[in-house]
Amino acid sequence: MTKHRIYTTSFASVYPHYVAKAEKKGRTKAEVDEIIRWLTGFSQEELERQIAEKSDFETFFARAPQPNPARANITGVVCGVRVEEVPEPLMREIRYLDKLIDELAKGKPMAKILRS
């Protein structure tokens, strides 16, 4: 079975799109970073290192030091797919991130995005 193309895509190549999507809606890069840190457990320095190293998505999520257990509470639809029903664990992690960035761009308060 071949890997999905997104798994071998550099996280660093997609990250600017997350930031641009947020900024276009009046949100900030700092908020995008906060979401990613909340989801993965990376520190800001570790996140920046992953970006600098151009880690692919598979490596990025494999290196996540402490995936947030509350990420299981992320539900909803991204690209026509319910994130909580994605069977492949890595794809589910990617969809969780997509969903959180979507919520940020739609103006949701950070407390709700971070399920706190």
Rank of each mutant, 00 (worst) to 15 (best):
T2H: 06
K3E: 11
K3R: 05
I6N: 04
T9M: 10
S10N: 08
A12C: 12
S13M: 05
V14K: 13
V14N: 06
V14H: 13
V14Y: 11
Y15R: 07
Y15H: 14
P16T: 08
P16V: 11
H17D: 08
Y18T: 04
V19T: 07
A20V: 13
A20N: 12
A20M: 13
K21N: 12
A22E: 12
A22C: 11
K25Y: 15
G26Q: 08
T28D: 07
A30R: 03
A30K: 09
A30W: 02
E31H: 03
E31Q: 15
V32D: 10
E34Y: 03
I36A: 12
R37D: 05
R37S: 12
R37E: 12
W38V: 06
G41M: 11
F42L: 10
S43D: 10
Q44C: 05
E45R: 13
E46Q: 15
E46L: 10
E48L: 13
E48P: 07
R49S: 10
R49M: 14
A52T: 15
E53I: 08
D56S: 09
T59E: 10
F60R: 08
F61Y: 09
R63N: 14
A64L: 13
P65E: 05
P65R: 05
Q66I: 01
Q66Y: 03
N68F: 14
A70W: 03
A70C: 01
N73S: 14
I74Q: 06
C79I: 07
V81D: 07
V83N: 06
E85I: 00
E85T: 00
V86D: 06
P87Y: 00
P89Y: 01
L90W: 02
M91C: 02
M91I: 04
M91P: 00
R95P: 00
Y96K: 04
L97I: 03
D98H: 04
K99A: 11
K99G: 02
I101W: 00
D102K: 01
G107T: 06
K108R: 02
P109D: 12
P109L: 13
M110T: 03
K112C: 01
K112D: 09
I113A: 01
